[in-house]
Amino acid sequence: MKTAYTAKQNPGLKTPAARSSAKLKLAWLLIIPVLLIRGFTTLYPSLVTLYNSFFEINMFKGGQHTFVGLDNFIQVFRDDKVITSLKFTVTFTVVSMVLHIILGILMALMLNLNFKGKKFLRTITLIPWAMPMIVTGIAAKWAFNDSYGLVNDLIRRVFPGFHFDWLIHSASAQAAVIAVDLWKDVPFFAILLLAGLQFIPEELYESARMDGAGTVKSFFKITLPLLLPTLLTLCIFFTLWRIVSYDIVYAMTSGGPGDSTSLLAYRIAIEAFTNLNIGYGSAIAVCLFVLMMVFSSLNLLAIKRSEQ
């Protein structure tokens, strides 16, 4: 009653409920522009892509739409080029992420040691990550050339007469693409893990040493369990980046030899913008979205289990 009386006598005063409502309205007012932008740049294109996947779109007749139902999706699973791209996308993602984890942890542990010049080393470690992928891909294409490439030049210093064109053989081209991806992104992955290592109290390692635990045991009993939430969270983002990779293949191999290094994102671009098969390219994009959801769900499941 006192609050109500005060509010009547002083119209400028607001009750706690009114102030809370005003703050909520202000929050929504500030968030709505962001939601509109995200909806326009993310939700709308996604819905249009899903819609187009059910049509055959003839760009030579002004974008004429012909409803074909699930025919585009059926064609996806019958297209040998798409199946090849899907296989390499899965291989590229899984192998790259496994090596990201192993090499990233090793590099993070090394950068976490106390030695002179560690700040300088941490800084230059990020140079590969800072380079645009399109530039890295073009440089890698030259580096793996048999005649004048850096890779074969270094090998020939040990084995004179060595000749091998890495990018004209399927297996070696796939390995080269994965190696370049690792060279570029593992340093950034390691720096992020290094940030996680900084939050592990040194007292835990001192207690472990007093109990007779060695370096290896301390790593598996202290470092890895405490680093696991950070590691799994990073895996979600890095996995999604691997799945939608396009520029490395575009610059380095153009999907060749044949279609052996063609990732799904690259196949979508070829179908939609080179072959002007918008409906079919949209169907492949929907399948890629489902693949991303599967990998994301597996990562989230791993995070949930690690917290139990």
Rank of each mutant, 00 (worst) to 15 (best):
P33H: 04
L35R: 01
L36M: 14
L36F: 13
G39D: 07
G39C: 08
L43K: 10
P45V: 13
P45H: 09
L47F: 13
V48P: 02
V48S: 05
V48A: 07
N58Y: 06
N58P: 03
N58A: 08
K61T: 10
G62N: 13
Q64C: 00
V68Q: 13
V68I: 15
V76L: 03
R78Y: 08
R78M: 11
D79H: 00
K87Y: 02
K87A: 04
F88N: 00
T89K: 06
T91K: 10
S96E: 00
L99F: 14
H100N: 15
G104T: 09
M107Q: 05
L111Q: 07
L111G: 04
N112E: 10
F115L: 05
K119C: 00
R122P: 02
I127F: 13
I127A: 10
I127D: 01
W129F: 15
M131H: 02
P132M: 05
M133A: 12
V135W: 06
V135C: 09
T136S: 14
A139C: 08
W142P: 03
F144W: 10
S147H: 13
Y148K: 06
N152D: 06
R157G: 11
F159N: 04
F162V: 09
D165N: 13
D165Q: 13
A171G: 07
A171P: 00
